[in-house]
Simulated assay, not measured.
Amino acid sequence: MDLPADKRAAYRALVDAVLGGRGTATAEQRTRAFENTETDPALRPLLEKVATAPSRITDADFDRARAAGSSEDHLFEVVIAAAVGQSTRMYESALAALDEATAG
């Protein structure tokens, strides 16, 4: 199932801004958070929860990441990248399932 061009453009702009925009986290750090791969061990527990159990994130998760040296801005950027990445994977899986279900 193809997205209309304007929705594809909006999605691409979002991902480009999250991954390549200015910030305190490097583009590589944001990309790793987006892809849910090889993130900083100090951030791993928090970012894993973003991807798999966001309702279980607590202040203590952020406190541990800050105690390991992450700033508020850095945490914001990698958490958003992780959330957008997980949303992307879920959305693409849903579109693939819909395509499969409606294939002639």
Results as ranks from 00 to 15, higher is better:
Asp61Cys: 05
Tyr91Asn: 03
Val18Met: 02
Leu47Thr: 01
Val18Tyr: 01
Leu19Asn: 07
Leu19Pro: 09
Ala67Phe: 03
Leu46Glu: 06
Ser87Thr: 15
Val79Asp: 04
Ala42His: 01
Leu47Cys: 03
Ala10Asn: 06
Ala10His: 05
Leu98Thr: 10
Thr37Leu: 07
Glu48Tyr: 14
Arg64Glu: 09
Thr102Tyr: 14
Glu100Thr: 12
Ala60Ser: 01
Tyr91Asp: 01
Gly20Asp: 13
Arg64Tyr: 04
Arg56Tyr: 04
Ala27Gln: 09
Ser55Gly: 14
Glu100Asp: 12
Gly23Met: 02
Pro54Lys: 07
Arg22Phe: 04
Ala13Cys: 01
Tyr91Glu: 07
Gly21Pro: 11
Ala101Ile: 14
Glu77Phe: 06
Gly21Asp: 11
Ala60Ile: 02
Val15Gly: 07
Val84Met: 06
Tyr11Glu: 11
Asp16Ser: 14
Leu3Ile: 06
Glu38Lys: 05
Phe76Trp: 14
Met90Pro: 04
Leu46Ile: 08
Ser70Arg: 12
Leu43Met: 00
Val18Cys: 01
Ala17His: 13
Gln86Arg: 12
Arg56Asp: 14
Phe34Asp: 03
Ser70Phe: 14
Val79Ile: 14
Ala60Arg: 04
Gly69Arg: 13
Arg89Cys: 08
Pro4Met: 00
Ala96Gln: 13
Arg56Val: 07
Arg8Thr: 10
Arg64Thr: 12
Asp6Asn: 15
His74Asp: 04
Val78Pro: 02
Glu92Gly: 03
Ala67Met: 06
Ile80Asn: 09
Ala65Leu: 01
Ala101Lys: 13
Asp6Glu: 15
Leu3Tyr: 04
Leu19Cys: 11
Asp59His: 10
Ala81Trp: 09
Ala68Leu: 03
Glu48Pro: 06
Thr26Leu: 05
Leu46Met: 00
Glu92Met: 14
Thr58Arg: 12
Ala25Pro: 00
Ser71Val: 10
Ala97Tyr: 01
Ala97Cys: 02
Ala81Tyr: 10
Ala42Lys: 02
Ala81Ile: 09
Ile80Gly: 01
Asp6His: 15
Arg12Gln: 15
Met90Thr: 12
Met90Glu: 07
Thr31His: 14
